[in-house]
């Protein structure tokens, strides 16, 4: 058991293993995203209230889900790195953080664009919007902390500690923001309660969500492989690999 983990967790082992895994995820991502977006944008029926503007959901919901998953992934990688000192976990964490920040921004931006036709405003201090905004700041903090250290290993460990502190705080922040919102203003718009959708609407959404996840995994694998090559560039196997090409 431990030998398998160590073999998989070593940079070279992960590099070889992910090379076999990567094409499948790319293929699945392209296939799912293409079908999902074509189906969602062209064939799914328009909403009886929102018209065509509801189609933003096919970008908005997957991005929001992915943003939260990326933070959890970041924290899991941080624990693996701090407890078992597996370097690959930290490399994965370092590429997941900017991706998570980007997804949070996409979710916020698409939500704002969606808000104009439906709510008549770009921004409301709704509980969900606010907690997504705070999530974005947490991502920024982790990225900035990692970059602030001149010594890479300290930066990695500091960012890992912050990711774990952040993931413990996210539920607290989420619930307190919800409490705050219900205290201050009655919910004028409810994002949480959506009318149940017919199947031809949510099927493409499901495909898009799966597609986004496959894209996330594929991109993380690819960028982790690059990170491995960059950090291990003085190792012999990397040199031989480069020379061999």
């Amino acid at each position: 058991m431990w030998r398998i983990i160590h073999q998989f967790g070593s940079p070279k082992g992960f590099y070889d293993f992910s090379a076999r895994l990567q094409p499948w995820f790319w293929a699945a991502a392209v296939l799912l995203l293409l079908t999902g977006s074509l189906w969602g944008l062209l064939y799914a029926p328009a909403d009886y209230q929102q018209g065509d503007s509801f189609r933003i959901i096919y970008v908005h919901v997957p991005a929001a889900l992915l943003a939260q998953s990326a933070f959890v992934g970041l924290a899991v990688a941080a624990v693996i790195f701090l407890v078992w000192k597996i370097k690959v976990a930290d490399m994965a964490a370092s590429v997941m953080a900017p991706f998570g920040a980007a997804m949070t921004f996409v979710a916020l931006f698409s939500g704002a664009v969606w808000g104009v036709p439906t709510w008549g405003t770009w921004w409301v201090w709704d509980a969900r919007l606010t907690s997504m905004l705070i999530l974005l700041f947490l991502f920024f903090g982790i990225i900035a902390l990692r970059g602030a250290f001149t010594h890479r290993d300290s930066g990695s460990r500091a960012a890992s500690v912050l990711a774990i502190v952040g993931v413990i705080n996210i539920p607290i922040i989420k619930y307190s923001v919800e409490w705050w919102n219900t205290l201050h203003q009655p919910a004028t718009f409810s994002v949480t309660e959506r009318p149940s959708m017919p199947a031809e609407m949510w099927m493409p959404l499901l495909l898009m969500v799966l597609g986004f996840y496959c894209f996330f995994i594929a991109l993380t694998l690819m960028r982790t492989r690059n990170e491995i090559l960059r950090r291990e560039s003085n190792k012999r196997w990397v040199r031989e690999l480069v020379r061999g090409q």
Binding site: A144, L145, A158
Partner: peptide
């Protein structure tokens, strides 16, 4: 986390302020 950095002040607020929000709310 930032004590080893030369200019940790601004970074410190970036790290800590999001975590302060629940306390502020209540």
């Amino acid at each position: 986390l930032t004590v080893g950095l030369v200019r940790g002040g601004v970074l410190l607020s970036l790290l800590v302020l999001p975590l302060y929000i629940p306390v502020l709310i209540f």
